[in-house]
């Protein structure tokens, strides 16, 4: 029983992180129709900056148990790069998808090296800080409380996004803009500002994902380009642009990863891509494709 619970919980943890990054990807794709290859790099930025900020804060004598909020703040602060990158993307909104994809690939190349310039290739971590919240015993499995916090935070954010999109005036404008941008514009909505907000929100979701994962691992120079292929699998399985798709896709990829790591590690990525291909063949637009944001 303990084994099963432990697998269930670690699958849920990786799904939580994947959901945050994939949600950033989906939000931007849903509204702006741009598939942003750079979300993996945002995730890496979040991880590096999160580790640095928390280590600095702890060094300054701030209470250690607050570090969870430090990570969230790190993710939110990185939102400032959103408007800058959105400005770079602006000239290509009306261009062919191939060029949009390539420009985000250019951003991947640049962000990879900027991250390396700032932090070097040494791995960063927050040590054993995440254990200060202790562990709990769930039906025979020992689970760090930190993991539960991350799962709860991702769940809260998921519900928050759902409410934002379905219940608020801003969400209605977003969904309308995703459907027909020109129409929304002619109704007097400043879509230029809307795009800046949406893109920055997407950045923050990905950077929070990166910041929250760092206590349980360490940063690596390749973590961004590696994550984008997983986030990509999530959104293709779930359906491009759909938030519900991001949630379901994250759970599928999270559990597939965890199960194969537990039983036969070599096939981890193979299985993910097989699922992707099977989904694309049976439901080309993903499980929830065609839904708006």
């Amino acid at each position: 029983m303990g084994d099963v619970v432990s697998i269930l919980m670690s699958g849920l943890f990786s799904a939580a992180i994947l959901f945050l990054v994939a949600a950033g990807l989906q939000l931007v794709f849903g509204v702006m129709k741009i598939f942003n290859l750079a979300v993996g790099s945002f995730y890496a930025l979040g991880a590096f900056f999160g580790a640095t900020l928390v280590n600095w804060a702890v060094g300054e004598g701030l209470p250690q148990p607050l570090f969870f909020f430090g990570l969230l703040i790190a993710g939110i602060l990185l939102g400032v790069i959103g408007p800058v990158i959105e400005r770079l993307l602006r000239p290509i909104y009306d261009r062919d998808e191939a060029f949009q994809l390539l420009l985000t690939f250019a951003i991947v190349l640049m962000l990879e090296d900027i991250t390396m310039m700032i932090w070097g290739s040494q791995p960063r971590s927050t040590g054993s800080l995440y254990l200060i919240y202790g562990t709990v015993n769930l039906l025979g499995a020992t689970v760090p409380v930190y993991n539960l916090l991350v799962i709860a935070a991702a769940g809260t954010i998921a519900v928050g996004i759902g409410l934002l999109l379905s219940r608020t005036a801003f969400g209605r404008v977003l969904r309308a803009a995703a459907d027909k941008r020109e129409m929304v514009q002619s109704l007097g909505v400043n879509t230029r500002r809307l795009y800046v907000i949406v893109f920055s929100l997407g950045v923050v979701l990905s950077t929070i994902g990166g910041a929250l994962v760092i206590p349980v691992t360490a940063t690596m120079s390749e973590m961004g380009v590696e994550l984008i292929v997983e986030a990509f699998a999530v959104v293709v399985i779930g359906g491009l642009g759909s938030m519900r798709g991001a949630l379901v896709g994250a759970l599928v990829v999270g559990y597939v990863t965890t199960l194969s790591i537990n039983y036969y590690p070599p096939i981890e990525m193979l299985v993910i891509y097989l699922v992707v291909i099977v989904v694309l063949v049976i439901k080309p637009r993903g499980l929830f494709g065609g839904e708006t944001a």
């Binding site: 770079l88 390539l102 090296d113």
Partner: peptide
């Protein structure tokens, strides 16, 4: 890669 990314952009 930073230089190349800028060139590509």
């Amino acid at each position: 890669r930073l230089v190349f990314g800028a060139i590509l952009a």
